[in-house]
Structures are given as structure tokens and as C-alpha cells.
């Protein structure tokens, strides 16, 4: 009986000690999220492409971080600004992060948008899921055949636009750097509206993603004239990239814009996010991106993946901030031109 009592006591002690030890072992970066729920704010529409990327990544981030679930919460509005404002004031414990178009946020901040309550340079960047080069296209039957034709125009280049998104600002920077006159006609509603406007000749051209425009180029409804990227698109080697055409002062602005666009679909957390949580999530996002199952799933869903790790993205944001101050007058002038 005595032995049994002692054995029971020893067992209870052992249990208590091991129970106390577990949390200490749990300090390893990857155990921070064990059994927890991570809230992933997507400040875009629940049916949109951004949310689909988030849905693709969420289970894999949970898998590699040890979290019970990565819960997606859509807080759309203000072109992603409202949901990002929400993240800005969240507790930096790493339990709430966001995923959206990073260039949109930086450009909204640089242009002095009244809605912005955050400083995009202070967020903790956790990794990029994808980025897609942008392309400048004109209508298939338009007399403009190349970017040189745009520069030679004796009238402004008419751009039907949905509003002050990243394409609006990027085009304004390009017009300034490549020295052509630009007239942005705002008020269009959605891609179909702007797309049809240039196909029928109401407008000259617009900026969009390669993925969206390829079927239209193949049909002859649109013609690519400029790639907004570090290099030419491999499938369209005759279309020049913006960086190779710009000379002088404009080069720095275009470089800043290209760097900004490269950040595209990124994960980020509130300022001063817990370093252990940051390390754990950067690791989980990188491992998720390398998971062959996620890659196969992405391919099946037609989602282009071009991941990059959190440290690289954090370094990029510093470069962008330093270089982009020169952009501010151009962005503000673009905003003033539609008032």
C-alpha cells in the first residue's frame, strides 16, 4: 500500500514537472502558435483574387506554424486602406496579421490619402505570396503601335481608370518619366468597363496584369506596348520594359515604382510585432510557399505564385521608402489633375 502511495506521488510529481517544462520547451519559435487561432485580415472583397490567395495559403501557414487555424477575415474598403488601418492598431502579439497588395498601401500613403492612418514602412513584413508584372496595353485597333507612338502623340494619351489605385499612380509616374501627356478619365466601374472602353476606342490604353490581358492580346483586342518590370516578359520579348527606356531623373522614380510593384501580394504584421512570432511566421510562410501541395493547388486554381521571404521584403521596404520621396510631387500632381 505504501509503495503504491509513493508510486502515485512520484507519478503526480513527474506529471507536474513535465507540465511545467512543456511551456519552457515551447519557447522555441515554432511552438508559439500551438493550438492558437491566427486572424488573417484581408482588406479586399471575399470573392476577389487576393482572398483566394489568402485561402490557398491559410491552411499551410497553420500547418507549419502549429496554429489550430488561420482564420480569414475580410475587411474591405478604401482600396485596402480601411482593413490596414485596423491592423495598425492591433496588439503586436502576432495573432493578427494581414495580407493584401502592398504597393497600394505605400502609394496611398505617399499620395497623402486622407484615409491612411498607418505608416507602411513600420509594418513587419512576413513574406510575399506572389507578384505579377504589369503591362501597358492599347486597344487592338488603335493607331498607337508602340510606346514611342505614345511619346510622339500631339494630344494626351487617354486612360480610362477605375480610380486612384496603383495603376493610376504608376501611369502618372511613367508619363512623367517617359515625357508624354496623359489624361486620366476616372469614373469607370470595374475591369470590364475600362477594358471595353479601350477596345472600342473611347480611351487609348491602360495598365493591367499580364495574366488578365493575355487572352485579350491573343484575340487581337489589345496590344502590349510596355512592361512595367525589371526585364521584358519572356513570352513577349519585343515589348520593351519601362526601365530600359527611362533615362536621367526619371529612372529612380520608375525603379522605385517597379520595386514597389514587386512587393505586391504580401503578408505583414502590426508595428513592433513580437520577434518570436515574427520569426515563426516568416518561417511558416516560407515553408508553406515551398510546399509542393500548395504549389500544385495554386497551379490548379490558376494562381501565379512567386514567393519571397520576409527578410527580403523588409529590406525592400527600406529601399522603397528612401527612393520614393522623389515620387511624392508626381503622385500629388496626378491626384490634383482629376480634381
Amino acid at each position: 500500500m505504501k509503495t503504491t502511495w509513493k508510486t502515485a506521488l512520484a507519478g503526480a510529481l513527474a506529471l507536474a514537472v513535465s507540465a511545467m517544462l512543456i511551456p519552457f520547451e515551447g519557447q522555441a519559435a515554432s511552438d508559439i502558435y500551438d493550438g492558437k487561432v491566427i486572424t488573417l485580415i484581408v482588406p479586399n472583397s471575399p470573392g476577389g483574387r487576393m482572398t483566394r490567395y489568402a485561402r490557398l495559403y491559410a491552411p499551410y501557414i497553420a500547418k507549419y506554424s502549429g496554429a489550430k487555424e488561420v482564420r480569414i477575415v475580410n475587411k474591405k474598403g478604401g482600396g485596402g486602406v480601411k482593413g490596414t488601418n485596423y491592423l495598425w492598431v492591433q496588439k503586436p502579439d502576432g495573432m493578427t496579421i494581414a495580407f493584401t497588395s502592398v504597393p497600394t498601401l505605400i502609394l496611398a500613403q505617399l499620395s497623402g490619402s486622407e484615409a491612411v492612418q498607418f505608416d507602411a514602412t513600420k509594418f513587419v513584413y512576413l513574406g510575399r505570396a506572389a507578384t505579377e508584372p504589369r503591362v501597358m496595353v492599347v486597344g487592338g485597333t488603335n493607331a498607337i503601335k508602340s510606346i514611342q507612338d505614345v511619346q510622339k502623340l500631339d494630344r494626351p494619351f487617354i486612360n480610362p481608370s477605375q480610380g486612384t489605385d496603383e495603376d493610376f499612380y504608376t501611369l502618372a509616374v511613367l508619363a512623367d518619366a517617359l515625357d508624354f501627356k496623359l489624361k486620366i478619365v476616372t469614373g469607370y466601374e470595374g475591369q470590364a468597363d475600362t477594358g471595353v472602353a479601350i477596345i472600342k476606342g473611347d480611351g487609348d490604353g491602360l495598365l493591367t496584369s499580364w495574366a488578365y490581358t493575355i487572352p485579350l492580346i491573343q484575340n487581337g483586342d489589345m496590344r502590349p506596348i510596355l512592361t512595367i518590370w525589371h526585364e521584358r516578359h519572356p513570352d513577349y520579348p519585343d515589348v520593351p520594359s519601362a526601365l530600359e527606356l527611362v533615362k536621367g531623373d526619371g529612372k529612380e522614380s520608375v525603379q522605385a515604382i517597379v520595386n514597389m510593384l514587386a512587393m505586391h501580394r504580401g503578408f505583414f504584421g502590426p508595428p513592433d510585432m513580437d520577434p518570436k512570432a515574427t520569426a515563426a511566421l516568416r518561417d511558416a510562410i516560407s515553408r508553406a510557399a515551398a510546399d509542393p501541395e500548395l504549389q500544385a493547388e495554386g497551379k490548379k486554381q490558376g494562381l501565379i505564385l512567386l514567393p519571397s521571404d520576409g527578410e527580403t521584403e523588409q529590406a525592400r521596404i527600406v529601399q522603397i521608402t528612401n527612393a520614393s520621396q522623389g515620387l511624392v510631387p508626381v503622385l500629388k500632381a496626378a491626384l490634383a489633375s482629376i480634381k
Binding site: G78, A115, G187, L335, K339
Partner: peptide, 17 residues
Amino acid sequence: PVTATPRFTFGSIFLLD
């Protein structure tokens, strides 16, 4: 939607949309 100017928002971010 045309000039990206806030109207009747009284400084509220919520009302911007």
C-alpha cells in the same frame, strides 16, 4: 468616384467607403 474627394464623411474613416 471621379475625383477621389471625401464627401459628407466628417473626418470619419468608416464613412469613406
